[in-house]
Design a protein around this nucleic acid. Structure first.
Length: 665
DNA sequence: GTAGGGTTAG
């Protein structure tokens, strides 16, 4: 008679929806050994199926409860009836049925009152499955209290708490504390403890603890456990400056699997060592380890970083061919890759054909469109997203605001910024303020931008100050720029980019002595300007050029090509924009310096290496300079080539002497 | 009860 049909439960659930307490319990998804639970005169009955051996088909009431006015069988009688494990499971069922921390404490108090003492197994299990920090704290407080004696489950219990904290966003440090406490109590870690605590170390970048855990792993001989070592690789990759150590662990592992390779490839990719990531992926294939979906996501992220569209396309076909499972996340990575490697239409195409989209899918296309300067499309896509019932998060607003900024949509940007808090309840973070400063600065509203910064609820960061300084330089507010830069250098005296900014301002003010002094100071401190570089992919190989680069074996031919380009451009009416050159040299030398920019070298190389009419794709590490921008426009017309340039923050499509950015960048 | 992944202003 306790065989309640599913339909009946559903009906009851619906009837009782108004009653918060009961429906909370009814929402509970029962573990598999509990086959039914039903609501009977407002009592909750947890029923068991026939036991695994197939004895007795009847179910017994293990816990009968009037909503939150508890009437429980005592633990001893539960144990007598069902054995220890089942008794614990029934407690767990009740605790899991609490979907709020408040309910948890209530139920736990009742359990204690009914003689079901501190059931640590149940509590820690609850904490580990809960994302509620309060629940984890509550359980760990009990576990760590001195009067608790946990002879049976020592390591397991600690593992559970360490794991729960390791999975939190901001409290991974507590996982480390619990681990330390566990060691102090003389509880030995096992092979499951290490991945948890290493993950926490990785999350907070605690290299010292990571190393000491590594020592402990060696001491107890867990260094032949592939799971432990995989997390070790991950940990070293996440702790700054220790890729070499990660690689050492990786190289010395007696056996590895796709996870090991993913950890190492992903580590390289996250650190921006994209060429290493791709190289290791190629090695992985020669070794014969089958890459999985997650490997492919890391590889795609490396392609995205390099702007390696051809390689990215190859990865896509590889995914098809090898039938790698195409999850939403993998699709998102593909969309991001195509968008950032310059094939935004392919990205849009993939996006439209997805049957399930997450906020990340939307964000990827929105950011992609923003990078391509397609501001109005970005906005309509955002509106479409809202209509589709997606809840916007703070990341998508960064994409949206930067779209407004790249397309000069000042009023729209301001409106969306205000709507964040008003309409969507998202408090703008410093990055959103940064977007707004950028928006105002690009539109030439330097004074308004300054006012905006002064009225911000937080202190401006270095990025915002730099945006202001660049705007001051571009719009002739040199004195103001100088004073902000000096402030910037006082804040962070060891950052070379501030010195570069200041020296650029002095160049523009024609104050060569001050500029030389800055350069000397930089030399004294051993600082160097980041050299501008341009990358190009030809026949699946990436080539990188810096200004005046003669490292390529065909540099003679390349420079001849550049001379020819220069002659053709002059004939077509090109004049070098020497005002951007920040060197104290004469006009002729300035022109020469411009001609040797890495972008022009890469274009000359591409003209030599690719058949007429094929598009040229370039990836720069800095923003494209005014002279290269103008020169590239000329070249696109003279040589009848589509030239796609991804610079530090957006795409430029050069065709027939025009650029898609409409000279606004 | 075990590991590994993606989106973020200049």
């Amino acid at each position: 008679m306790l065989m309640v049909q599913k339909q009946k439960v559903e009906d009851k659930k619906r009837d009782l929806e108004k009653d918060v307490n009961v429906s909370d319990v009814a929402d509970f998804e029962p573990p598999r050994w509990i086959f039914c639970f039903r609501l009977m005169d407002q009592n909750v009955v947890v029923g068991y199926p026939s036991n695994p051996e197939g004895r007795s088909g009847s179910c017994r009431n293990v816990a009968v409860e009037r909503p939150w006015g508890m009437k429980m069988q005592s633990q001893t009688s539960l144990v007598r009836t069902f054995g220890k494990r089942e008794a614990e499971q029934s407690c767990l069922a009740l605790l899991q049925a609490c979907n709020t921390f408040e309910k948890l404490t209530q139920v736990h108090a009742h359990l204690l009152k009914s003689g079901l003492q501190n059931n640590l197994l149940v509590l820690t299990k609850f904490a580990s499955t809960s994302s509620d920090l309060n629940a984890i704290n509550y359980a760990s407080r009990i576990l760590l209290s001195p009067e608790v004696d946990t002879p049976l489950y020592d390591t397991f219990l600690y593992n559970t708490i360490v794991r729960a904290y390791a999975q939190t966003g901001d409290y991974k440090g507590r996982a480390v504390l619990v681990y330390n406490f566990m060691r102090e109590c003389g509880v030995l870690p096992n092979k499951f403890t290490y991945p948890f605590v290493l993950k926490a170390c990785a999350g907070i970048g605690d290299l010292n603890l990571g190393k000491s855990v590594h020592g402990s792993v060696l001491k107890f001989g867990f260094d032949n456990d592939v799971h432990v070592q995989n997390t070790m690789v991950h940990m070293y990759c996440c702790c700054e400056g220790n890729v070499e150590m990660a690689r050492k662990v990786f190289d010395e592992m007696p056996k590895d699997d796709s996870v090991t390779w993913s950890a190492m490839i992903g580590g390289y990719a996250r650190l921006g060592l994209s060429a290493d990531a791709i190289g290791l992926f190629r090695k992985m294939q020669t070794v014969g380890v089958r890459p999985d979906e997650i490997t492919m996501i890391s590889v795609l992220s490396a392609c995205t970083d390099l702007g390696a569209l051809e390689l990215g396309k190859w990865v896509e076909s590889y995914i098809q061919k090898e039938k790698v499972q195409k999850s939403v996340e993998l699709c998102n990575a593909l969309i991001d890759m195509f968008a950032k490697c310059g094939d935004i239409d392919r990205a849009l195409n993939l996006f439209t054909n997805m049957n399930e989209r997450t906020i990340v899918s939307w964000t990827s296309v929105i950011v992609g469109l923003a990078m391509h300067g397609r501001g109005l499309e970005t906005i309509s896509l955002f509106e479409e997203m809202i209509e589709a019932g997606m809840v916007p998060d703070y990341v998508v607003f960064i994409g949206l605001l930067s779209a407004c900024s790249h397309s000069g949509l000042v009023d729209k940007g301001k409106r969306y910024f205000d709507s964040m808090a008003e309409k969507y309840g998202i408090l703008p973070k410093i990055k959103h303020y940064g977007c707004m400063v950028d928006l105002l600065c690009r539109a030439g509203l330097v004074k308004e931008a300054l006012e905006f910064v002064q009225n911000m609820p937080m202190e401006p960061n270095q990025i915002i100050l730099r945006t202001l300084i660049n705007a001051c330089r571009a719009h002739g507010e040199l004195k103001l720029g100088e004073s902000i830069t000096e402030q910037l250098i006082r804040n962070e005296p060891m950052d070379e980019s501030s010195y570069v900014l200041l020296s650029n301002i002095y160049a523009k003010m024609l104050q060569w002595e001050k500029k030389t002094k800055i350069r000397e100071e930089m030399d004294e401190q051993g600082m160097r300007k980041i050299p501008g570089s341009t990358m190009i992919e030809i026949d699946n190989e990436m080539y990188e050029f810096v200004a005046g680069d003669k490292s390529h074996k065909e540099h003679k031919e390349i420079f001849e090509m550049m001379d020819e380009m220069g002659r053709e451009m002059k004939r077509a009416g090109y004049a070098a924009s020497t005002s951007e050159v920040m060197l104290d040299i004469n006009e002729e030398d300035k022109e020469d310096a411009l001609n040797r920019h890495s972008e022009k070298i890469a274009i000359a190389f591409a003209l030599l290496k690719t058949p007429p009419g094929t598009p040229i794709r370039l990836v720069k590490n800095l923003r494209v300079c005014a002279d290269c921008h103008s020169a590239t426009k000329f070249i696109s017309k003279i040589y009848n080539r589509e030239i796609v340039v991804r610079d530090r923050n957006r795409f430029h499509y050069f065709k027939d002497g025009l650029c898609s950015c409409k000279d606004f960048w």
